[in-house]
Every structure is written in C-alpha cells, then in structure tokens.
Design a protein around this nucleic acid. Structure first.
Length: 972
RNA sequence: GGACUCAUAGCUCAGUUGGUUAGAGCACCUGCUUCACACGCAGGGGGUCACUGGUUCGAGUCCAGUUGAGUCCACCA
C-alpha cells in the first residue's frame, strides 16, 4: 500500500480519479428492474457560458445529492447539457463578428450566419461542461443534451404543433416589449423595471376653441390651453388625443373639444374621456400615444383612435416624429423635442424626475412598447400546475417559494413565444405564398389553405414561405426534464429509461428562474407526458371543455379556468420533478450579485487550482444555508482546503500508527473490534459518529447542507482528531489493545469517508484506496446494487450505512454503544483544558516535565486514575498523581476536585490571588442567578422535573467549586 | 401598492420542538516546529442576540409593532 504524503496535493488526485471514474462508467444512469431511481436534470448552462460561482454552488449541490443517492444504492442519473440561449448566444456571436470581420448578421444572411453560430458552438460549447468535470460533477456524460440537437429540436417543434392543434397558440398584433438593441420582442419576464432618472416635461397644449373655467373664488376666467405632463416629448408627434378622467370636474366641459398638437405637423387632436386616467396624478390629463404605450394603446382601442408609429425598430425616430427629429436616436430626440417645445413656448417646465422604466434584461437598455405581429401561447395546465404544488406532489424547499409560484400562476398572462432572431428553433409555420401576413384573421390561422403547421413542413414547399421568427429559448428549455429522456419518440424514451427516470427526483436551481423555467416546466410536464399513450396531451373530455379557447386578449385568457380531470395518480406521473431546491444567489462581501461586469466573481478554476475541487465544494456548501443567499468569502474556501488536509493527515497518521488490516468491508473491520475492550472514549466517539450520521441523513432529506457539512467538520476535527486520536496514542502503544484501537479508527474513518464523499469526492476516493477500503464486496447492510454484490472498485460503488444500520451492525458484533460515556469523557476534556490553562497561566505551557497533583474525593481519583496515562500525554506532564493534603501551589478547580501544578518554581501569591478571585467572582455571579431561579416558586412549581433537577445539580456543582476556590484563596 | 427574507463576536455564519454560563471558522493576542498535520497544536480576549412591547416560571428562539438591509410581483403619463 502506498505511503501517504505529508500534505494533500489535489491536482493529480483529481485528474487521476476523474479519468478512472469515467473509464469505469461510474456515472452511467442505469436502473435494474425495480431499483429505486434518483434523477436530476441539470439546469442547462448557456452553451457559450463559462463557469461562475453560481454554477459552482448549484452543481456542487446536485453532485452531492446524486452521489449520496448512489451510495444509498439508488440508480442515480444526472443528465447534463447546455442551452442554446437564443439572444445571449446570437448577441455574442454578432459582437464577435462585428469585431473580427466588421460585419453584421444581415451582411452574411441567415444561413451563413447560422453556420457561424454553429461553429462557435462547436468550438466553445463544451467548455462549461469540461469545467464541471473539474469540479467533480458526476453527470452521465453519455446523456449530454443540447437544446438545438436534432432530437431535442424535434421535441420543441412537436410541442409547438401539439399546442397549436390544441388551440393554445395564436398569432396577433399587439403591444410587446421590444428590445431596440436585440431587435426582438421579449416576454414580460425578460423585462426588468429599474428606477431611472430623467425629466418630466410640463407642457401647454393650446385649445383649438378657447373655453372658460372658474377659479377658486368662482370667477369665470378664460382658458386657452390644457396643461399636461410627459416624460417622453419625442413621441408627441405620434399623439392622437388628450385624455382626461370622465368625472374630473376641471376638464369635464372640455371633453369633445380639441387641442393643437404642439410638435410635428400642426394638427388638431380630440380631448377624450377615459377611466384609465388618474385625475390625481400629475396634471390629470394624459397625452395619448397608442403606438408607444400599453395604456395609451388600450385607450386608443376603446376610442377607435388612429395609430401613429414614430419609432423605428432600432429605437431611432422616423419621419412621423417630425422632420427635426427624424433619424435621431430616441434619447437624443427627447432632448431635441424639449428644445423645440421650449422655443415654441409650449414647454412650461422640465423637472428632474425618477420613474420606473422597463429594461431589457439581456441588453440593459430601456425597452419600447411596440405594436407587432407575434405568436402567443395560452399556457396549458395552469390549474393542474397549481394543484400539484398545493397538494404537495411537488415540494419546494424552502417552502415559502410556493406562495410566489402560486401568485404568479394566479396572475398569469399569455406568453409571447416568438423572437425576431435567427438563432433558435424556427417556428414550424408556413404561410401560403401571396397572402398578406398582416391581414390574417384568427379564422385564417385555422385554414389549411392559408397556414400550414406541422413538423415536416408542407409537401409542396414551393407554394409556401416559412415563418421567419424563432421560438423563445424558454419555449425549448421548458421541455428539458422529458425531452432529455427521449420524448416524444417512444423508442428513444425506452432507450433512455424514461419510465424509470421520470418524474425526476430533485430540481436544484436558483429562485430567479422560478417563472422562466420552473413553473413552465411543471406546466409542460403536465401537458406533454403521461396519458395512456405516454405522450401526454389532453383527454377527450378536456378537448371538449377547451373548445374554441383562443382569446384575443392576453389579460383575460386565463379566466376560462379549466378544472383538472386528471387523477392524483396521473398528476404524479406527469410532474417533471418531486422536489425543487432553490439554492441562494452567490454574492460578494458587499452583498452585490456576482457578475462579469462588476468583476467581483472569482474564477472557479483559479479557486480549484488554489484550494482543490474538494476544498471549493466543501467550502461553498458550508456557507450555503437553506434558501438564503450566500455571501462569498474566500476564507471559507481556504477552510475547506485546510479541512481536506486535516483529513489527509489523520489518515496518514493512521497509516503510520500500525499495519493496515482487512478494511474491505464493514464486517471485516467489525471483526477486529473487540467489544470487551471498548472504553469510554470508544463509546463517546461511536456515539458522536452515529449522531453525525443522523445529522447528515437529515441534511440530505431536508436540504440542510450547511448543517451537515458543519457537523462533519466538527466531528472529524474535534471529536476524532483533537480528542480521540490524541487519547488513542497511548492505547496504540499498548500491544494488548492496539489492534482494537486501530480497528475503531478504521471503522470511523470508513464511515466518515462514505459520508464525506458526496461533498469531497476526490480526496475521499484517494484515501479509500490508500487505506485499503477498496475491493471487498458491498457492505453488510446493503441489499446489493444494480449489478449485485460484486466487488467494489470505488468508494462510490459501496453502500453507505444508515445510522440505524450501523447501530445494528455494532450490536450484532456485541458492541452496544454506551450513551453515558460521552458525559464522562466530557468531564475528562474539561479536566484537560483546565490543566493546560493552569500551565499557560503559569507560563509553562510548552514545558512537558511538570507534575500535577490532584486533591479530591476517592471516587474522583478513581475516575481520573483510569485516564491518567492519556491525560499526562494530553496535557504535557510527566505525572498526575494523587495528594491528600492541601498544597501551597497554583491550583484550579476541576470536575474531579482541585488540581495543583508543581513547576518547581515558587508561587507568586499576589498573582494567584488575582487569578482565583476572578474565577470566584464569575462563579459567584452564576450561583446568584441559579439561586434566584430556584428560589422562584413559579419556576419550581411549573418547570419540568428534568429542568429543575438540572438546575439543582448545577447549583450544587457551582457551590462546590465556589467553596473550593474560597478555601484556596484563604490558603494563600 | 402587494408578497417575502434577513438583522447574533471585527468579518462570514450556526443556534433543532422556548430550558444550565449563546457557539464555529476567519481575524486578533500569547505560547509552541511536541515523533499526523504551521493547511498545524495549546491557551486567551471579544456579543445588552437591531429596537420596543407582549405571551411565559423562563425568550436569541413564539406574537405584535418600530427601524434598517435586501428580494420578488404590480406600476401613472
């Protein structure tokens, strides 16, 4: 067996084992008949993406879950892949193209441009997956998917056709969120409201027919103009009316009159009354610009107003904005418009103003409400999607997200699924040549002579033109949990093990995409999977209920609530996952989201190089409390590395302490543990181990990883290394218990490595191999893995024991863990600490030749005497012996009576007095507190007996200590 | 406007159903290269648990309110 080096060098270990695991196909998701499965689909990173700290946290969590499942004997399957990420990728390639060739995508044409994107993807697309391997992720790489793969694309188009046939998809000209940079429509979810500083312009709109009004005193005064305020003067030329509230007394008599439009062509526009106007806001009068505002558009519809579109797609103003503004960018145009208005006297005032403006999340510029033809989806299975979460078929962790989820579904609006991009799934719709796409009615959409919708396209392509638009990226990723398992192709589904791995078990993702992705996947799963044909879809009854469901207005389309006719069993079959775990967002120390632009995100690969993949994984999980954002702190990652090194050295020390015996199974190790030789330290250690196992078990079921990692840390470092290994040093010198003592260590290290593996797969695998745990058959409590109880080559082939399983296995070999031992060991730990403290106080901490003398009851000495050989070693003394007389030496009061330190140096009474007085003061305070509690009748009569007894015992101990300190002080 | 989260040591965080003297890591101070580990060992200092009130024999923990930080949804010119 190879000797263990002095410190853990992660790099070589990581490379070696990752290759070995892949070689042995350890990560393959294969399920034996009847075997329990555990499936995770990765949140597919953007194909152009590079690994950032958010990925590290998210994927470490998934890997921990998958690896734990594997150790528990489940058929674990983690499906990796990447997302084509329409806008993000297209933008990136366009930028690159501009830089390297000075060309735009239109210079190349659609086909050529797509070729470039594909070659970009072929070159860089696997980078992030490679980085995940360096992190140790145990994905089944043979199942890697890409949302633009032929098979996946077919799934996407199939879903479109099915939804179209089911009446869920329609086309319509409506106000959308338009991104003037990406030149495409966006869904509401892709728009982010940001407070934005600007100006609000107070303007005079001159009345065509002068009117009168009354002032506060009731005097009739002439009225020549109307005052209103706007933040967008550049759109005034597109105004078609001025609106006031119908009940507003200031303006009622003006309704029906007209004003002069103050900018652009000098035309008259009507004053209308509409309830959308808030009389209390600004001037209480609103300029109506139907082409450039959602509310204005609706007002325009209600009043049959014309629509003037003064903006180009790229956000520049066109000729309708007026000759002075035409061709200008919208922001420059705004300034120019203000200048013109000021010159003409129409501008009364420009006040600094901050309002919420919608920004394109991707491009970071304000979006424009724009009237365009788009494809819309009326979401399927909305009610069922609520039901499965409300009824707990899908559980969210932390649970509070269910409320956010349900609230969104309650207010859901139709989804704009078309994008004016080239990179994506081109919508499988063909228009008959010669028809006017602008004039298509809803009925036309269902007329096969005008519109063709299918997977294969029309049989006579020469007579048709395909839709130019592609689908929103999320309209492909919402199929991820089942399209990666072969849907909709039955043969592929069988090959991928769909029936075994679907529904998947856990989805781990960030809450920032709960609407984008999580909610939509649930609806998609419910719509497309299950059913008698395994292909989802609606039952006949449901088809009848949703007959003629297309609605023109997205706001109201969700009102026609369809009640589920799916049974609970059917719903359970269709859901895409059973648990959703929302990990926090990784932030920097100032609490800012980590981002490329801020440059505050460390490169995970640098961190891996510096601290090892295991150090990084363990470190990040330790600071990732359930559902809370993570403030990244590199010190914690260093802590992860240090812990790995500690583990490494403890194992190294075990190897140096004595020959390795048969470690190939739990049974083999237990055979070497001599139950009759178990002492208090053994019992306390085993009790702590079992407690740790329970904590870790709970950590995985409750997604409390921080708790699990912290217990693993304190168990190994404090319980095992600091105490047990130290006290065992004496026993290992004793031939009569040596084998037994080493066997206990082998047992504990074994169980620890198994528990730790999901968090730190590399170092554990290496130590598993170095310490000879490899090679046996699967463990005693295992019922056999997918391939039966064959020899295990890797740690991850082994079955982990449950805490109960270990208790049972110990009991079967005669080792019943004595729970009371921990208390006795704790007293010895206190004794050791006090003895060291005394040495430090006397400035002889480093001396190892001092003598201790214990003065106490006979029983105390008996307890101490048993541990004397360990204790002398632990505290650094040549001897701890008993004294029956009071000595003039520095002393401390321990749980075993008074302890004197003999350094051979004369005592300094003044210093001693100070030290002891300080201690006495402290204990006196505690006694006062305890006494007053016990003196309170309300407490003694109402507190439970255990608490009461505890308090009494505490008081007695405190008093004994006080008395002894008092005596020591007097003796000085 | 609506929903939610958080506030504990200088920093980052634990603190299970209320119950001894509120813990860890990092940082800081002291001592130590003691034959696993200086990526370490031993010891130490450091907290009115944001504030106010309530429930209770007992509150960091439960309830109400206040303040502060943050997130999501909606959004008016």
């Amino acid at each position: 067996m190879a000797e263990i080096t002095k410190s853990y060098e992660a790099k070589d270990v990581e490379t070696k084992w990752y290759a070995a695991w892949q070689e042995a196909k350890c990560f393959a998701g294969r399920a034996a008949p009847g075997q329990e499965t555990y499936t995770i689909v990765i949140p597919p990173p953007n194909v152009t993406g590079i690994l950032h700290m958010g990925h590290v946290l998210n994927n470490t969590l998934q890997d921990a879950l998958i690896r734990r499942a594997r150790l528990e004997g489940k058929a674990a399957c983690w499906i990796p892949g990447t997302d084509h990420a329409g806008i993000a990728t297209q933008t990136m390639v366009e930028k690159h193209l501009k830089k390297s060739e000075g060309k735009g995508r239109r210079d190349l044409g659609r086909e050529e441009f797509l070729k470039r994107v594909w070659s970009w993807r072929d070159e860089k697309g696997d980078m992030i997956l490679q980085q995940l391997r360096e992190l140790g992720c145990s994905c089944d790489w043979d199942r890697t998917h890409f949302t633009m793969d032929p098979g996946y694309s077919k799934a996407v188009l199939t879903s479109f056709v099915k939804l179209f046939d089911g009446g869920h998809i329609y086309r319509g000209k409506r106000m959308v969120n338009w991104c003037p940079v990406s030149l495409t429509a966006l869904s509401d979810e892709e728009v982010e409201m940001r407070p934005t500083k600007g100006f609000i312009y107070r303007l005079r709109y001159e009345l065509v027919e002068p009117a009168t009004t009354t002032d506060a005193e009731g005097n009739v005064i002439p009225l020549t103009h109307l005052i209103l305020e706007t933040t967008r003067p550049e759109t005034i030329a597109a105004d078609v009316a001025v609106a006031v509230h119908p009940d507003d007394p200031r303006y009622q008599h003006l309704v029906g009159k007209r004003v002069w439009r103050p900018l652009g062509e000098r035309v008259q526009i009507p004053i209308i009354a509409d309830i959308a106007v808030d009389p209390a806001f600004a001037a209480g009068a609103l300029k109506v610009t139907p082409a450039h505002d959602k509310v204005d558009y609706e007002i325009g519809q209600r009043h049959s107003l014309p629509i003037i579109d003064a903006l180009n797609a790229d956000g520049t103003l066109n000729e309708f904005a007026g000759p002075e503004l035409a061709g200008m960018d919208r922001f420059a145009g705004r300034k120019k418009a203000a200048e013109i208005l000021e010159a003409s006297g129409a501008l009364i005032e420009a006040k600094p103003y901050e309002n919420n403006v919608g920004y394109s999340q991707r491009a970071g510029v304000p979006i424009e409400p724009r009237l365009t033809q788009q494809w819309w989806l009326k979401y399927p299975r909305v009610e069922e999607a609520k039901q499965v979460v409300r009824d707990g078929l899908i559980q969210m962790h932390p649970e509070r997200w269910t409320k956010v989820y349900l609230n969104w579904l309650d207010n859901i609006q139709d989804w704009c699924i078309s994008r004016q991009l080239w990179w994506g799934h081109r919508i499988p719709v063909w228009y008959a040549k010669g028809i006017d796409r602008e004039q298509l009615t809803e009925a036309d959409l269902r007329d096969p002579t005008k519109i063709h919708v299918s997977l294969e396209g029309p049989v006579d392509p020469e007579n048709w033109t395909q839709e130019d638009d592609v689908l929103d990226t999320w309209a492909s990723s919402w199929l991820w949990p089942f399209a990666t398992l072969g849907w909709p192709n039955a043969e592929e589904q069988a090959k991928a093990g769909f029936s075994q791995f679907y529904p998947t078990t856990t989805l781990a993702t960030g809450a920032d995409i709960i609407f984008f992705w999580v909610a939509r996947m649930i609806m998609a799963g419910l719509e497309f999977t299950g059913g008698d044909d395994g292909q989802g879809g609606m039952t006949n009854d449901e088809c009848r209920m949703t007959n003629g469901a297309t609605t023109a207005d997205p706001k109201h389309s969700a009102l026609g609530i369809r009640h589920s006719s799916l049974s609970r069993e059917e719903l359970a079959r269709r859901i895409p996952f059973k648990h959703v775990y929302f990990n926090g967002i990784v932030r920097d120390k100032q609490g800012r989201k980590m981002s490329k632009t801020l440059g505050n995100s460390p490169d995970p690969l640098d961190l891996i190089a510096k601290y090892g993949a295991d150090g990084l994984r363990f470190g990040i999980l330790q600071i990732a409390p359930l559902g809370q954002d993570v403030k990244f702190d590199e010190d914690r990652i260093e802590g992860g590395k240090n812990f790995c090194n500690k583990l490494w050295n403890a194992c190294r020390f075990r190897q140096m302490s004595g020959p390795m015996s048969d470690n190939t199974s739990l049974a083999a190790i237990l055979a070497r543990v001599d139950a009759s030789k178990l002492d208090d330290d053994d019992h306390a250690l085993l009790a702590a181990l079992i407690d740790t196992m329970r904590t870790v078990e709970r950590g995985f079921t409750e997604f409390e990883f921080a708790g699990a990692t912290q217990r693993l840390y304190s168990f190994f470092w404090n319980d095992f290394c600091d105490w047990y290994v130290e006290v065992a040093k004496a026993r290992v010198q004793d031939p009569s218990v040596k084998d037994h003592a080493l066997a206990v260590q082998d047992l504990v290290i074994r169980e620890f490595l198994l528990m730790f593996e999901p968090f730190a797969p590399f170092i554990t695998e290496e130590l598993w191999s170095l310490l000879g745990y490899v090679g046996g058959t699967t463990s005693v409590s295992s019922s056999g893995g997918p391939d039966g109880a064959g020899p295990s080559l890797f740690l991850q082939d082994t079955r982990i024991e449950t805490a109960d399983g270990l208790v049972a296995a110990l009991a079967a070999s005669g080792a019943h863990v004595d729970a009371a031992a921990s208390g006795r060991v704790d007293k010895l730990k206190q004794f050791a600490t006090l003895a060291r403290q005394l040495k430090a106080d006397q400035l002889v901490a480093q001396k190892r030749d001092v003598k201790f003398l214990a003065l106490g009851h006979h029983a105390d000495w008996l307890a101490l005497e048993k541990a004397v050989s360990k204790l002398t070693r632990l505290v650094g003394a040549v001897d701890i012996s008993r004294t029956t007389e009071e000595l003039a030496l520095p002393a401390t009061v321990t749980p075993f009576g008074t302890l004197y330190l003999d350094t051979g140096i004369k005592v300094d009474p003044a210093a001693e007095r100070t030290r002891l007085t300080k201690e006495l003061d402290a204990i006196t305070k505690h006694i006062a507190g305890t006494e007053s509690r016990l003196g309170n009748v309300a407490f003694t009569s109402k507190a439970p007996p255990a608490v009461l007894d505890g308090a009494k015992k505490q008081l007695a101990d405190q008093q004994a200590k006080r008395d002894e300190l008092t005596r020591l002080l007097k003796a000085l």
